[in-house]
Every structure is written in C-alpha cells, then in structure tokens.
Amino acid sequence: MRSAPGLTPVIGIVNIGVMIVAVVALLVLPLGHDDETAEHKAGPAPEATPPVVPPPPPVTATAESARNVGANELGLVPVLMYHRILSKRLASIDRTPSQLRGELEKLASEGYVPITAAEFVAGAVDIPAGAHPVVLTFDDGHPSHFALGADGTPKKDTAVRIIYDVAGRYPGFRPVATFWINADPFGLRDRARQKAAVGWLVEHGFEVANHTFRHPDLYRLTKKKIAESIVREQRQLKELGAPRSATFALPYGSRPKKRSTAREGKWDGTTYHFDAVFLAGAEPAISPYAKAFDPYNIPRVQSNGKKGECRKWCSQYWLEWLRKHPDRRYTSDGDPAHVSIPRRFRGKIKAKFDGVLITY
C-alpha cells in the first residue's frame, strides 16, 4: 500500500503480517464502549418500495467549475469493510444495526455517495459535483446482510434495509454496496432461494462477487487448492445468475504465497481472472486514476470505533481524518467524462487520462 499521490506520507505502509495480526486481535478484543457503540435512533420506517436514486444530471466540468467545488479526483476513497450486523455484538468486528445506520447517516450528511467496488476499480465514479465516493463492502454473505420479508422488501435491520432506510432520508445517498459471498450466501442452502436473493440484489444495482467457496486462509493453501476454492465459487455465482466477478476480496486479508494466484488461475478446466483484489485493512484507497493505484492490493477500512487496534486503523478514525483534511479526499467534479485535479497533482495521474484531464 502506498501513500496517496502528492500527499504528506501520514498513511503508513501496512504489510500482510500486520493486517492478519490486527484482524485476529480485533476478533478477540473486549468490546467495550466508544462513540460508535452508542445506540443510534432510527429514522422513520421506509416506504414499502425501496427508493430509487436517479443518476446525477449530466454536466460538463470546466476548470472554473472544478475549482468552485474543490474537485480532487486523485484524492483518497474510503472502502469500508463490514462483517456481521448483529443486535448484540459477539466480536469486535461485528456492528449493530444502530451503528451501521449511524455511520451511513454520517457519510450521507457529509456528502458521500456509495459506488460499488467494481465501479471504483473501473474508474466509473458518476456522482454529483462536490460529492465524495465511498465503497461499502460486506464480507461472507451473512444472513444479517440481506433477507426478504413477506412483503418482498428487505427485512428490518439487515444491511440492505438499513442502506435503503438511509437513502430514504438522504435522497443523494445511492443505495448500492458490494457483497463478497461464499458457499451459502446469506445463510441460504436452497438453490432456488439463493438464486432469488442474488437476483434481487443484482437487479437493484448491488455487486455480488467472489470470496472463495469455503473462506480458507489462502496463504496456507497450495496453488491448486486456491484455484479450486475460487473456481468453485465462480461456478456457483454463475449458476445463481450473478455477472462475472470483476473484484475479489481475500479471506482474512491473507495473500497467497504466490500473490498472482489471487487474481488469476485455472482449475478443472475453468479459468478465472479478477480486475482487482481487495485486502482486509487498513487505510483509505488511492484513486483509480493515480499512477500509484495498484488494483491487486486495494486496502479497506474496517468499520469500527477508536479503541485498541482501531485507534488509527478503523472507520471512525479515518472518516474523522478525511473530514479534517478535505483536500486529501476524493471530491468529484460531477463529470464522469473528465478527471479534475488541482494543478499541483498534474504529474501524479496515469498518462492514459491526459486527454480528459482538467487542472486548475
């Protein structure tokens, strides 16, 4: 992981050993209480039909308009990592529905707009001028992430329902996220129900992608076993009607001994290739337009407060840091056809974007 282009090197390099230690430590740390654990009052119940957020109106950015909104499309993007959403946390990495809702409402109130991991990697950041992209990611396909009620809408206190609750209160908050799933998505074992769940999410703009079939530690596996675990999940996703997985999240954030195995390989006659690989920690991600962007080592920020290992590595810390350093975060020019940046970052952008670059 590298520091953001042109920025003061305040963001440390986190190697895989540190990430694994941090994840294990967070699993066993006492829960305690912090600012993020206070119960957050829910807003009014959402409508029966989930809200639809229309795309922003088309604009053509100019140097003047980019300057007016402080556009910096080489800024940092928080890719937030969530696991179980439980009314009573059983591990430090769990979040309660109130905590998730509170964090999403803070993001919405500060002008963040969700995009999927695949959109981020592709540089498809189509959000209003002055807004900031955020990537909401949920690992393991836990039942608390998604389930449909008898009325055909997401059940109360699931991650998807909470995302829609927030979108209902903040119309600019686009209700999308990325779900990296395993063998029994959302706790479902019946293939028809699995297919219905994945189909609903894909139809509503969510990304459903590969997290291996049984969530092994890839560092401990042979190249063949890694490929098998990924291909088995790839085949399942295809059967369930999900598009090709452009992105892949490493179980436990643990990279294989041969790192290229996480992004491409072959097993039993089936090949796989990912456009990006996401880690398990522990800082905001570099813009996909930057020369320093490495699509196969994209860091994520665990959603959590500022206790223990999270004093400087989890979402409360980083979102506060980005709030205090607005010039360091990604701010959109509102024009997906151009990339706007302050002139001082001119040398930090990939050459292929020179033809669409706006500086001020």
Rank of each mutant, 00 (worst) to 15 (best):
D268M: 02
G12F: 08
G241D: 09
V10N: 15
W318R: 03
D34T: 03
Q236S: 08
P243K: 02
V202D: 13
G172D: 08
I358Y: 07
F186S: 07
R263L: 04
P295D: 01
D190I: 03
A66W: 12
A38Y: 04
V277E: 07
P58V: 02
F248E: 01
Q302D: 01
S92L: 06
P128V: 01
I162S: 10
L76G: 08
E203Q: 11
V79C: 12
E320C: 08
G32W: 04
Q236E: 10
V14L: 11
M81Y: 15
V21P: 01
H83A: 14
K258M: 00
E47S: 07
T158K: 14
L250T: 06
P55G: 09
N304M: 07
T331W: 07
K257R: 13
K156I: 14
H325L: 01
R259C: 00
L322T: 02
G123Y: 13
G187T: 06
I226W: 05
R84N: 15
I13A: 10
A4H: 15
L218D: 10
F248R: 10
A147F: 02
L80T: 01
L100G: 12
R84P: 01
D184V: 00
P56Q: 06
P30R: 10
R344A: 05
P185M: 11
D184W: 02
H83L: 04
K350Q: 10
E233G: 13
A197G: 11
N72P: 14
G102Y: 14
R84V: 00
P44Q: 06
P143G: 04
R323E: 07
A159M: 08
V18P: 01
L90N: 15
H215N: 15
Q236C: 00
L80V: 02
G308Q: 06
D126N: 15
I162F: 12
K257H: 12
K306C: 03
R232F: 02
R263D: 03
K156Y: 14
L322D: 03
I226P: 04
K348E: 08
I230N: 11
E103P: 05
T331H: 13
H211D: 14
P97E: 08
K195C: 04
E203V: 00
R214Y: 14
L188C: 05
G123L: 04
L76D: 01
F293A: 04
K258W: 07
R84E: 13
G75C: 08
P5C: 05
A246K: 07
G111E: 01
L90G: 13
H273P: 00
V24W: 01
L319P: 06
P295K: 06
G130D: 13
A192F: 09
E39Y: 08
L80M: 04
R101G: 07
Q302C: 03
K307V: 02
A71W: 05
P57Q: 08
I127G: 14
A131S: 14
K350L: 09
A196P: 10
S303Y: 08
H83F: 15
G6L: 03
E105N: 02
C310H: 13
H145W: 09
F248P: 10
L80W: 04
T359I: 10
D35V: 09
P30Q: 12
D333Q: 02
I11P: 03
A196R: 13
W200T: 05
L29M: 13
M81F: 15
D34M: 00
V160E: 03
P243N: 05
I11A: 15
M1F: 09
G281L: 14
I298S: 12
S245E: 00
V134G: 02
V24S: 07
